[in-house]
Structures are given as structure tokens and as C-alpha cells.
């Protein structure tokens, strides 16, 4: 290497190093966030949920909401009123205008493949994992709420007050945005989301949408299902049947 370092080489080397460091730094953040995960998350899986509104009773949905509150530690806010209260998952009653058929369903983050919240987030705090789970990095969120403006499912909440007694696996912070994490902390341990466990029937099926042998994949192949606001082409991870 007798060649002296010219300016172009210098810029090349420095850029490469910077990109390298940035990549590692990113990795660290994500690993910390995923917690106990030992194997890297890949896009070979796509986690999803199928909710059968014909089988799901109102009691089931109430159970799902309570299970989510208990697991993630939200719902005991004291100062927030009305629409200020968080709603990671909520019960909806929907009536068909033509037939009058009434359906009950649980609505939460739909874990879109093309999430508008991720597109609009200025700081990359809203992000989608390789396996399709959409999350908020609480360390990067500046609380601008643009993601809440962009979400077509009203799935996100803003923490309006100081919180205490938080769950260790789910730090929540005043002034940041939060939503259903599909219980990523459980999925990474090979478990199933809390709301799914709470339902004692196959009204809610959780699994890998890509895995041809999974129950969710096979069921979706045989029955008619729908995505909410399918017209937006977001390709949601949460699907509904019986709507």
C-alpha cells in the first residue's frame, strides 16, 4: 500500500465505516427491543391472526380486551378521560346496512405489510419487524402523533399521563405512542398472544401466515375472509371471517 490516501478514498472509507457502525448500532437497538429473542427474526415468517366473527361472542371479546390489559399493563390510567384512555384492542359492533346483520369483532393494530404509520414516522420509531409485527420503538418516538393521523384503524394510543407499575417487558412512556405488539415478547419465546389464549375456541387463530402446515394458513385457504379496508391495499396480518 504505497498509495497515499486521497480525498475520494478517505470519503469512501469513512462512509463505509459510518454505515457499518450505524448498522451495528441499529442491530443493538432492535435486539434490545426484542428482548429474549436469540435467533434473528426473518421474513420467512409472517405472523397473523384470523378472527371469526360468527364464532366470537361478546364475552370472548371482553375477555380478549381484559387479557391484553393484564398482559401489557394498560387501562388503569387515572387522569385520562374519554378518548384519552388507551385502547390497544377494542370491541366493535358493526351492522350491515343492507342485511341488518350485526357482527362483533375485536379491533387492534392490523399489522399491515405496508403500514402507513411506518411510512409517515419521521424518526423510524414506528417500524415493522421482518416477521410482519408492527411496533413502536419507545426510545425513538418523539410523540408527534403523525402515525395516529395515518392509521386507518384507529389502533394507536398516545400516553397522556405519567404511568406507574409498568410491566417489565412492556415499558410505556408518557408522551409516546403505543399500540398492540401482537405480544411480541411472548411470540419470541414461542408463545401465543394473550388475547388469543383468552378465547377458549377456535374463533381466534394465531400463526404463521406463510407456513402451509399452520392452522391459520389452512383455514384461510378454505374459508372466505376479509381484511378491513382492503381497498387501501395494506395487506393486513389480521384477517376476519364472517363479516
Amino acid at each position: 500500500m504505497s498509495k497515499t490516501l486521497n480525498r475520494r478514498d478517505f470519503i469512501k472509507t469513512t462512509s463505509a465505516t459510518t454505515i457499518g457502525v450505524a448498522t451495528i448500532a441499529n442491530g443493538i437497538t432492535l435486539t434490545t427491543f426484542a428482548g429474549t429473542n436469540k435467533t434473528p427474526v426473518t421474513n420467512e415468517k409472517r405472523w397473523g391472526m384470523l378472527i371469526d366473527t360468527n364464532k366470537l361472542s361478546e364475552i370472548d371479546i371482553d375477555g380478549m380486551v381484559s387479557a391484553c390489559k393484564k398482559e401489557q399493563g394498560w387501562g388503569s390510567e387515572v387522569h385520562s378521560t374519554g378518548n384519552q384512555k388507551p385502547g390497544w384492542i377494542k370491541k366493535l359492533k358493526v351492522k350491515d346496512k343492507a342485511t341488518g346483520k350485526v357482527s362483533n369483532l375485536a379491533l387492534m393494530c392490523q399489522h399491515c405489510e405496508e403500514p402507513p404509520c411506518v411510512d409517515v414516522c419521521p424518526t423510524n420509531a414506528s417500524m415493522k419487524r421482518e416477521d410482519g409485527i408492527v411496533l413502536v420503538d419507545k426510545h425513538l418516538c418523539i410523540g408527534c402523533r403523525y402515525c395516529m393521523m395515518a392509521c386507518p384503524y384507529d389502533a394507536r394510543s398516545f400516553v397522556h399521563e405519567t404511568l406507574s407499575n409498568q410491566k417489565e417487558h412492556m415499558p410505556r412512556g408518557k408522551g409516546t405512542v403505543e399500540s398492540c405488539t401482537m405480544c411480541v415478547h411472548k411470540i419470541d419465546k414461542g408463545e401465543v398472544p394473550a388475547c388469543v389464549t383468552s378465547v377458549n375456541s377456535d374463533a381466534v387463530i394465531f400463526g404463521d401466515l406463510y407456513d402451509a402446515s399452520s392452522k391459520i394458513n389452512q383455514t384461510l385457504k378454505t374459508i372466505q375472509s376479509a381484511q378491513i379496508r382492503a381497498d387501501l391495499n395494506l395487506n393486513t396480518g389480521v384477517r376476519y371471517s364472517g363479516l
Binding site: C121, P122, T123, N124, L140, V177
Partner: peptide
């Protein structure tokens, strides 16, 4: 009015170029 105005430095250093907000900054 940000939820975390103390994190302005994050807004100045982390850019998502798909975000209109990031472009606006």
C-alpha cells in the same frame, strides 16, 4: 407540543425519508 420535545435531537438525527415530516424538518 411534541409528546417528547426533549428528544428533538432524535428528530434531527434519525430520518425516515419516506416520511413527509422528516422531509419537512
Amino acid at each position: 407540543d411534541l409528546g417528547r420535545p426533549d428528544r428533538l435531537i432524535v428528530a434531527m438525527t434519525e430520518y425516515n425519508f419516506k416520511s413527509i415530516f422528516a422531509w419537512n424538518i
